[in-house]
Amino acid sequence: MGIKAVNLNYIYGQGTAFEQYALKDVNFEIQDGEFIGLIGHTGSGKSTLIQHLNGLLKATSGEIYVNGENIYSPGYNMKALRSKVGLVFQYPEHQLFEVDVFSDVCFGPKNQGLPKEEIERRAREALSLVGLDESYYSQSPFELSGGQKRRVAIAGVLAMEPQVLILDEPTAGLDPRGRDEILDQIDRLHRERGMTIILVSHSMEDVAKYADRLLVMNHGEKLFDGPPKEVFKHYKELEQVGLAAPQITYIVQDLRSRGIDIDDNITTIAEAKEAILALLSGKEKT
């Protein structure tokens, strides 16, 4: 399921003294089954952009095509769009409201108007996808830990069985273990179910590890668009817009500047480990 944005503009507070471009002439096309990392400093328009993709915000001008259909054409079914494009907001645990975990996860599919058995099947499946077993079903979502709450909230969106999953900083405020668990679960959804993922993140390490392609936003405009390795080559420009490359890229650059011949395409620790070990074993032989 492809998403295509054409000349997307969004102006906040149009017609008032506080008029401001939140998105400026943004163009991109996302193919089926891609894992996109969306990065940009605070206020760069990432959150505004993703809210356009499921029709929560309407662009001031420009078009969005989902599966080739213009979502702004009259009579387009926004509700159907929202179950195709699932959006998990920042701190999604703030949206929990039901008396128990299971009924909260059922909220989405219930709104889709599905039969009861199907709703429950989806809720069970979504909860098992985020790693919560039956012992949690009847607990109050407000008594869970932060990481568990967040997983319930993500399950609430997964239960709608979207084809595209957009997550706005799903790991903000979680401990390292909770963070890795959530990201691994998202990665599994991408690999095993072929789900298209758009991950908004501030962690260059995370997007370098998981994403196939990066979109970099700056002041409402698209700055870079390409595979992580390509994008992180521009680490000097990234620094100018308040971002950076993964730390390991800096180490590799440092090694290179000291005359060590190491591949400058490295963006993850695993790759660096291999390359360094290869270099070391090469040295031993000679």
Partner: peptide, 13 residues
Amino acid sequence: DKIMKAQMARGAD
């Protein structure tokens, strides 16, 4: 506004 949007993303009307 935020919660409303989050619930609308889950199909609330």
